[in-house]
Computed example of a mutant assay.
Amino acid sequence: MTGNENRDVREEAYQIVVNRQNSQQAQELYRNLQQLGIRAVQFIPHIEFDRNGHLSAESVTAEGWGQFLNAVFALWVREDVNRISIQLFDKTLKQWCGRADAVNLQDISHIGAECRSCYVLHFCAGECLKHRDSSGKSVLCAGYKTFFNDSSPYMRVMRDLIKQHRSPMELMAMLRQT
């Protein structure tokens, strides 16, 4: 979608675990990835539950996750479209373009009614099973909603550029002019 789907399959995505601490240093973490020349990244939220079912102190919160994603996206969309592949951003753009895999109905059967009727379900697909609380809702739901809402104007522009057989990279030039 962003040009990185054709990257060398031997180049695997770096998996970066995002915890409560480094979620607050998104810009610094992303700048380090840029300096290292990393071309593909998958951000993995660190989620652990204690005996009582509460998030551990090390776990990223929903708010922290949303802020982290938005901070990284703000840099990426202005500087690195087509240069760095970020799995969540690529998947989200594919959804916007109608090219993503259909949401797995088997996974959806395990989520609560609130999630089944949610307007972002087609983007998050109910999220990871192990990140769900007792009601079947992801503990990161609010963070994902923040990201999907805040990134949507940019995703729309990139989708429209792609539909016009143009590069989504053009958005970076558009943003420099504003």
Rank of each mutant, 00 (worst) to 15 (best):
W76Y: 12
L55K: 00
R83Y: 03
L36S: 14
V72D: 02
Q106I: 14
Q106A: 13
A40W: 08
V17N: 04
F89Q: 06
L69E: 01
K91W: 02
R20M: 05
I111H: 04
Q87S: 12
R83S: 06
V77D: 01
H46P: 01
N82S: 15
S23H: 05
A26E: 02
A100C: 08
Q95S: 07
H46D: 00
Q34S: 05
L88T: 09
W96Q: 08
K94V: 01
Q25I: 01
A40K: 12
W96F: 15
K91E: 10
D50M: 00
Q67W: 11
V41G: 10
R31M: 12
Q15W: 12
L33I: 13
N22P: 13
I108G: 07
C115K: 12
V18E: 06
E79M: 02
Q106M: 07
Q106R: 14
G64M: 11
V103H: 02
Q21A: 05
R83C: 06
Q15H: 11
I108W: 03
Y30I: 02
R51N: 15
E79V: 08
I16K: 02
Q24N: 10
D107L: 14
W96R: 12
F43G: 10
L69F: 06
I111D: 10
R116C: 14
G37W: 11
Q67T: 07
N19S: 14
N70M: 05
Q15I: 14
R39P: 01
A57L: 04
N19W: 00
L36V: 01
W65H: 14
P45Y: 05
D90P: 04
G37I: 11
Q106E: 13
P45H: 05
I111F: 08
K91M: 04
A74V: 00
F68A: 07
A13W: 03
G64Y: 15
A71M: 02
I38Q: 06
I38C: 15
E79L: 04
E48H: 15
I111K: 03
F43N: 03
D107V: 11
L55D: 01
P45M: 00
D80V: 04
G53P: 05
A71I: 03
I44S: 10
I16Q: 12
Q106K: 15
H110C: 13
Q67F: 03
N52K: 11
I108R: 09
L36I: 06
A100G: 14
V77Y: 01
A71E: 11
S56L: 05
A13K: 12
F43M: 10
A62D: 10
W96E: 10
Q21F: 09
S59K: 03
Q24T: 09
V17T: 13
G112I: 05
I44Q: 10
Q15P: 00
N82M: 09
E58W: 00
R78H: 08
C115F: 02
G53T: 07
D90Q: 15
C97F: 08
G112S: 08
E114V: 14
Q34P: 02
S85D: 14
R51A: 14
R116H: 09
Y14W: 13
W65A: 09
D101W: 03
